[in-house]
Amino acid sequence: MSLEIAIDRVVGGAETPTAVVRLVGELDAANYLEVIDAGRRLYEDGTRRLVLDLSGLTFIASSGLVALHSLILIMAGEAPPDPENGWGAFHSLAHDVSGGPQMAVQLCGVGPAVDRVLARTGMGRLFLVHADRAAALAAG
């Protein structure tokens, strides 16, 4: 199963420019760069906050975790890890778990399979997780 990246809604105005990005399918080493590229384009278009709707994501590999972390860096205006560096991305986890969740990239609709990976790797502590996109958007 491939990955579909759908940008469903963009909130502008006085609030932090926010994009809701829905990932549908399986996020793995074959497509994680597409997610990073989507985040980079959104940042270039002015987006400074992402809500990732993962309700349609049925699988995430460790490379997918690199993509999620890269989105944090991109929304912070930092250079994402070198895509060719792969796992080296974890070297640059400037927003480490000791500082608690960051606010620029938030998750919603996390299913059991994805939640299991986030929990097992400690990556879940980097993100605020909401039940659905409405709750994520209301959280600001």
Binding site: W87, F90, H91, L93, D96, V97, S98, G122
Partner: peptide, 22 residues
């Protein structure tokens, strides 16, 4: 070592870690 910040972990270990725990 999951108790330390991720940037201090050995690169490449996360995939093997997932294999180990799964």
């Amino acid at each position: 070592d999951m108790s330390i910040p991720a940037e201090l972990r050995r690169p490449g270990g996360m995939g093997v870690h997932l294999i180990r725990v799964a």
